[in-house]
Design a protein around this nucleic acid. Sequence first.
DNA 1: ACGCTTTCCGGAAACGTTTTAGTATGGCAG
DNA 2: CTGCCATACTAAAACGTTTCCGGAAAGCGT
Lengths: 345, 345
Amino acid sequence: MKGIRQLAKHLDISIGTVSRALNDRPDVNEETRKRVLAAAEELGYVANQSGRSLRQGTTNVIGLMIESSKETVENSDNFFLGVTGGLQSVLSRHKLDLLMLPCPNDEDPHEYLKRMVARRIVDAMIISATQRVDKRIDLLVKAKIPFVALGRSTSGGNHTWIDLDFEGVAACAVDRLVSKGHRRIAIAAPSNDINLGYIFVDTYRQALERHGIAFDPSLVIRVKSSEQGGYQAGHEMLRLDSKPTAIILIYELMAIGLYRRLNEAGIIPGRDLAVIGFREEPRGKFLQPSLTCFRMSLRDLGVELAETLLATMPAYAAHYPKGARNTIWPLELVPGESDAFSLKA
Amino acid sequence: MKGIRQLAKHLDISIGTVSRALNDRPDVNEETRKRVLAAAEELGYVANQSGRSLRQGTTNVIGLMIESSKETVENSDNFFLGVTGGLQSVLSRHKLDLLMLPCPNDEDPHEYLKRMVARRIVDAMIISATQRVDKRIDLLVKAKIPFVALGRSTSGGNHTWIDLDFEGVAACAVDRLVSKGHRRIAIAAPSNDINLGYIFVDTYRQALERHGIAFDPSLVIRVKSSEQGGYQAGHEMLRLDSKPTAIILIYELMAIGLYRRLNEAGIIPGRDLAVIGFREEPRGKFLQPSLTCFRMSLRDLGVELAETLLATMPAYAAHYPKGARNTIWPLELVPGESDAFSLKA
DNA sequence: ACGCTTTCCGGAAACGTTTTAGTATGGCAG
DNA sequence: CTGCCATACTAAAACGTTTCCGGAAAGCGT
């Protein structure tokens, strides 16, 4: 099949009519439209995307930028694959395709995105792993590319973003531990440069003060969000003069390392120390004793992400309410045995 | 930046020359080339991909088709993200971009691929999770799209593929267990429809016979490649009249379920029963006792995949030896404690 | 001075599609 | 009958780029 020209010749019709028929435009007789559709199906004609894109200035492709750094691969679970399912279910309804753009780990994410944007291969973008200050956001705003950020940021004025409910999780964890009588609660988190780290620790501090507990900086243990970070967090914690009776982990993978360090020290989670993890992670599911943590639906998050994005795209906005530009995504507590340790009778 | 025309006007040069300069064509003075490059950099000009593609009939994009089914998301580790790193490192050297095409789980993979191919958005494809009979392969062969399959298949004559060394792994596992005196060795595998299931069990059978051990069909336990499948495998195994002294798992995630079932029965892996898992899986790393399994480098696999693919693409084949069209990817044994159980003094 | 090659550049066609402007036909009101 | 509108189509322009072709200028040997 050579192109629309062949199809038109085969039908003995002008290419303009064929094009309008295929694109559900008015100004075409219902019967000819059926003929065209049938012929296209029969000859297996599908419009060449390059030609379409060039003419329309639109590609029908949504880009999802992910970072394939070594750390991401080892630490994250199938986060993106999970979200992707929800994204697809919405986008495919509008005949939009999802393009995953994995930034090479030796290239600056900003430069990578810049190139992709300049080549005009996507109509809109979803970016993830946003930094507190993220040049990519300014870039997208300036280029007038509709986008949604997965993760809040202070860059680029008030752009559209969706982020997990760190505040809710941190507050819930603190409340829960305090209600069990804990007052010395440690927290293991990455540095403040990471959005997650900053917000989480800040909320933790506020929650403590709400309960009349003084914030003790020595209980904030700065480690990487990895298994190894968890091990190290356990190590640091054990070296404190005045030991905490509970610990909150900002990323659940840490739990695995923490458990190992605790095991070495003969400390049993849930009996000698209360532990709460942040996000449900498949690998954590098999810890003994089971970890108290927070669950979310990746698929639903994908759906929300897609709908939010479409609302920012002029061509599709009509179908979607211009809801809040910023969404806090809730998580659900999954009680386990790891925080059974109570200081109350 | 409006396009190459603007750039040409700005330089007071014809667009033809600008294009040739940017594309490293001969027939352009070295000094003008520098001027063009500098101006492009300054004005942030990057060629519009649609225009290029339309003219050249090539998109500089390699598609990686993945399936985002529920099962994939829950069972697999970050397999694709890991492979992606290796792919990128090779492809980016040739200014090729990687496009991940996640097939919606409510759409037939074959139809999805057909649409993508017809739209001509990729120059070549990598497909994964191949079936023993896979229509996608016939499709790609017919459309003359260069491709590599991750997983062997009987479709489409002799196409290029890379697959894991199931034979090596199965044989190694059997040899190892036999050398420890085991003669009743069970195997947990999915049905023969899955390529993996067929090859694995077949090799297992051959290995046993090589050691003069009769193949006992009742020791082949057909279950899903999941945690639950592992649990079920343990269950089935315990119901056998003549119980095995060792078991081989075709997918390591099964180990988690198996351990749980064994635990319920008071059986300790490595002491009462020898267990070997197939592929190193992050979640399995934390099992107690540690699991004997097989390791591979996802990144290296990605590199191999990319180089194999480039070798099949006329425009790039020159850079790569026309090595074997089919590659068996080796895995390395990682000894653990789970198969310490020996029947020999 | 002449012819030849080499080097460099400009003009224009071509890629496949969508979309705009224009045209023929027929119906209908005046 | 005339004018007007609606319908359904055709012809052609446009999108941005690459590449083919031809030609000008310069270098070189004779």
